[in-house]
Design a protein around this nucleic acid. Sequence first.
DNA 1: TATTGTTATACTCTATAACTATA
DNA 2: TATAGTTATAGAGTATAACAATA
Lengths: 180, 180
Amino acid sequence: MSDRQPDTTPPASDPAPGPASAPRGAAFLLAQIGAHAAGRFAERVGDLGLTPADVGLLRMIAGRPGRSQRALAEDLGVVPSRVVTLIDSLEGKGLVERRRSAEDRRNHELHLTAEGRRTLGAVSRKAAAHEDDLLAALDPAQRAQLLDLLERVATQQELTPGVHPGYRTLQKSPRSGRPE
Amino acid sequence: MSDRQPDTTPPASDPAPGPASAPRGAAFLLAQIGAHAAGRFAERVGDLGLTPADVGLLRMIAGRPGRSQRALAEDLGVVPSRVVTLIDSLEGKGLVERRRSAEDRRNHELHLTAEGRRTLGAVSRKAAAHEDDLLAALDPAQRAQLLDLLERVATQQELTPGVHPGYRTLQKSPRSGRPE
DNA sequence: TATTGTTATACTCTATAACTATA
DNA sequence: TATAGTTATAGAGTATAACAATA
């Protein structure tokens, strides 16, 4: 990587090969650290046979047992058919149970099984260890400070508590250029 | 959502339907805000016809012009064939140029075109607006504080400056419980 | 024979839409 | 006819591996 290029390569293009290219802002760091955190968390819950989406589902069902798949899909911002797949998997693992609603037999009321609750407990321990590792660089005061700042940002950005955008399909750049 | 369920549905499962389900930690917020930030950034650069991965490539090429695709793949943690696709797209848009290396003609040296540099300038403006929106809840002092905390975390976690984990495939949980 | 880049193939994931059963 | 859930199909994205050119 030196500069001994023969006359076949015109000196043409490169003007300022250094700065301006490495993003240094907090927004980039948030995205970078966020993706890193999500990946590490995925590894950890992977040990339990779960994906992060599974965990999200378990938490939502635990928080409001008996809700329907449709309601769940709405809250998560995903399409109902995806909930079918996710619940299939959780039911197959014996963590979630579908119960036909007696009021409206089209509905499935979702509940955790006993093992589902145990698993959710294990997830909580994984999450605690994860947080501790992720923030190893910060002392308790700094962690509190970070939490405070992040909560301000999340609130102002109107992020739904407990709902991870990763559950729904990333909005790919809507398509290059034209308006809808 | 009332509690008039007939005897067909045993009161069985749900014990503590409330807390324990909504994650409140900084790690979750980092992942949530990070995904949100990435999504919003994707929208913005989508206006320029670019994906976030495109932007990352442009930045790396700008930072070190002339590098080979293989080196790029290594630094990004992606497979070389993916770099082919990405560069194809950028070259098709006239932003990047492949030049046969005179030293080793197997190599392609990558360079930005003049338009590529202009586009990167536009990206920087998008990024600045993005950051400003994302951190609208914080005053300048708080933003500096956040940046400081995030940098500590990124350093301790050994995150490569400028390299977004989203460029490479998320490590799916290596196995989902049972060996298939 | 080893290495750079490319192409071809297969796999995974997810949304769309058709379908069923209840209402 | 409308709605909850399911199933079937198709599309996007990406890794794996075979391949061509150069060393």
